[in-house]
Amino acid sequence: MALVLPAVSRLRPLLLFAGLALAVVATEHLVTTRPIFFQRPALPMAVAFDVLVGLPALFYWLVVRRYGLPLSTLVAALGACLALATWLLPAGQQQPLRALAFLPALLEGATLALAVARAGRLWRAYRAARQHRGRGPSLGQALEQVLGWPGVLLVAESNMLRYAVLGWWAPLEVRPAHAAFSGHRESGFVALMATAGFLTLIETAAVHLVVGHWHPVAANWLTFLSLYTVLLLVAHAHAVRLCPVLLSDALLEVRVGFAWRVVVPRAAVAAAAIREAPAPAADMLNAAKVLLASSNVLLTFAAPVVVAGPYGTRRTVRRLALYLDQPRAFLGALAGGPAA
């Protein structure tokens, strides 16, 4: 019972979103099945706005922002909302959705054209970056520099697929002369991810059967997006397991899966203590949310540092809250002599 209550508390924002989303969908379904819906031309646009803007906004505020999830989850939510809007709106009232049908193809074509046009710059950037970093990281850095936002998306999705597919056999991403500190063993993080993935698969089967009775195409899209979500959960679990916090005699590298990463000189840490994260503030980042855990280490930096987030996002912070399996050992190594 003691283990169930913390798990429920962690899932409270997700459950709140699920309740609000069900209420919105029920309301929109009631509106679209009334005779007045076909007499008011503005109603289809209003329903499309509620589903394609309102629901993703709720998902971002209550789930993505609360847990610090990658923005790819928001992209998946947008796709699910598009399928939901297609199911809700009758066939003759889907004018607001027709303009969106070509959006994925346009984005893919624009990204491909941009990559071809900048192939020469991409090769030069890759060669320059490879002199300072490994082959894999240098390619990602070159893509981000040359392609801009499309390159950031491509690198993020490639990393996600790499962890999801190859993470089962990949070794820990550690380096010589670095002490490694994990953050997934004692929190039950892997069990939570496995439970979330299993529940998602069950829900996917049930939703496919129910929605498929009325709209097979929407059911297939929802199934695809649910399976993508499971893939994302698998990748997140592997990334957290394979990317511990690293401490050397000169540097501190904090990695929380592929969600947050910051590398600072060891001397840049002005204070470190075992404590939970204080109240949310503009100068603090609680990276433990990505682990669905309460933080137990608070780092305070001598000057603001830039933390790299998913999909090219950046946060400038003075305080960083973490969850570590062995917080006292980490603080002892940080304050003591050689780290490894």
Rank of each mutant, 00 (worst) to 15 (best):
T33K: 05
P35W: 11
P35I: 12
I36D: 14
Q39N: 04
R40L: 13
A42Q: 09
A42K: 00
P44C: 08
P44E: 08
F49V: 15
V51M: 09
L52I: 13
P56S: 00
A57V: 09
Y60M: 04
V63G: 02
V63P: 03
V64I: 15
R66L: 01
R66I: 01
L69N: 03
P70S: 10
P70N: 06
L74S: 13
L74D: 05
L74N: 07
A76M: 12
A76Q: 08
A80L: 09
C81A: 14
A85D: 06
T86A: 11
T86P: 00
L89T: 09
A91Q: 10
G92H: 13
Q94C: 04
L97P: 07
R98D: 04
R98W: 02
L100W: 13
F102Y: 03
L103M: 13
P104E: 09
A105Y: 00
L107D: 01
L114N: 10
V116M: 10
A119L: 15
A119K: 10
A119S: 14
A119Y: 09
W123Q: 15
Y126I: 01
Y126H: 14
R127T: 14
Q131G: 15
H132C: 03
R133W: 07
G134P: 08
G136R: 14
S138K: 08
L139S: 04
Q141G: 09
A142R: 10
L143E: 11
E144F: 02
